[in-house]
Amino acid sequence: MANRRRRNTAGADEIANAIHRMMDAMQPVAAPPRVMIPPVRPVTIEDFMRHKPAKFTAKATPDEADAWLCECEKIFRVIECTEAQKLNFATFLLVTEAEYWWMSMQQQMINRAEEVTWANLRTRFLEKYFPDSAKHEREAEFLTLQQGSLSVQDYVERFEYLSRFYSQTVTEEWRCRKFEGSLKHELRRFIVPLRVREFPTLVEQAKSVEQLEMGPSRVNRT
């Protein structure tokens, strides 16, 4: 009899425990605390102008037009502009004849049902101020570029700028051969035998040879 009571008690305990577990499982799970994400503040013209972009006038040379456009696009990336903001901010910088050109061009785009977007402004801007003829001139200059009286640093800067307009595929080896082949003779005779085929390394080697051959004072005066 005692054994039967103990078994009944144990069974009741198991049933009670099972009921408690079921009740616990039915309790609502507490939601994790909400993380408050601050609202993203829209980019303003003040944010753009804080980077001191230059005004653009129609008197700019093709190189200056290219540099202005590159500078604007760099700022756009930094402050994460939308396409609409790029259009508004860039046209804000157009002054005098460039502004008049854009007013006329914008009307033409509307008349021919062309979207007035940043991408289309960029295309029209390049057609006007950095046309294909300017690109071809810089490509031709790149192919005939020689260091001449330039310091290695000035030669590197011109080389890298003009190489952007070369229309053919450029390998690292070809780039190095073109660079070293256009160095002045007193540098080239030391650089070519090294057979350097990594452009940054080649540039540093040329600068080192220049300093050894000419001395720091003469390099700085060049």
Rank of each mutant, 00 (worst) to 15 (best):
R221Q: 10
L93N: 02
F165Y: 11
R124E: 15
K207C: 03
F48D: 01
K207M: 09
A31Q: 15
Q27C: 09
T91P: 00
D24E: 14
E173F: 06
Q168C: 05
A113L: 04
E46F: 03
Q106C: 12
I19Y: 07
T82I: 03
P42S: 04
K178F: 02
A12V: 06
N88F: 01
L187S: 08
I45W: 03
F130M: 04
T91C: 03
D154W: 02
M23R: 15
V29G: 02
R188M: 13
V95T: 14
F125W: 10
I79G: 03
I37E: 10
D154R: 13
Y166N: 12
V95S: 10
K184N: 07
A54T: 04
K184M: 11
D154T: 08
N120D: 09
F190L: 14
A134Y: 05
L94F: 07
T96A: 12
R175A: 10
A113M: 07
L69C: 04
M103L: 13
R34K: 13
M22E: 11
E160K: 09
W68R: 00
I79H: 01
N111W: 04
E115T: 06
T171P: 01
M26G: 02
A67H: 01
T171L: 05
P200H: 00
P200N: 00
E172D: 12
R195F: 03
N3D: 08
I110E: 07
R221G: 04
E172S: 10
T222D: 04
M36L: 14
P131E: 09
A54S: 08
A16N: 11
R221N: 07
Q205D: 05
H185L: 11
D66K: 00
H185A: 12
Y166D: 12
M23I: 13
E157Q: 05
R112N: 06
E160W: 01
R164Y: 04
V78Q: 06
K184V: 08
S217E: 14
P62L: 03
E157Y: 00
L183K: 00
E139S: 10
T57L: 14
G11H: 12
Q153P: 00
A206D: 00
E99Y: 12
K178T: 08
T123W: 10
T123K: 13
M109C: 05
L187I: 11
T44E: 05
F56Y: 08
N111H: 09
Q211R: 08
M109R: 01
M49P: 01
F190N: 07
L202Y: 00
N120M: 11
R189L: 12
W68C: 05
V35A: 10
I79T: 01
E198I: 10
W102T: 11
P193K: 06
E127N: 13
S133V: 10
P131F: 08
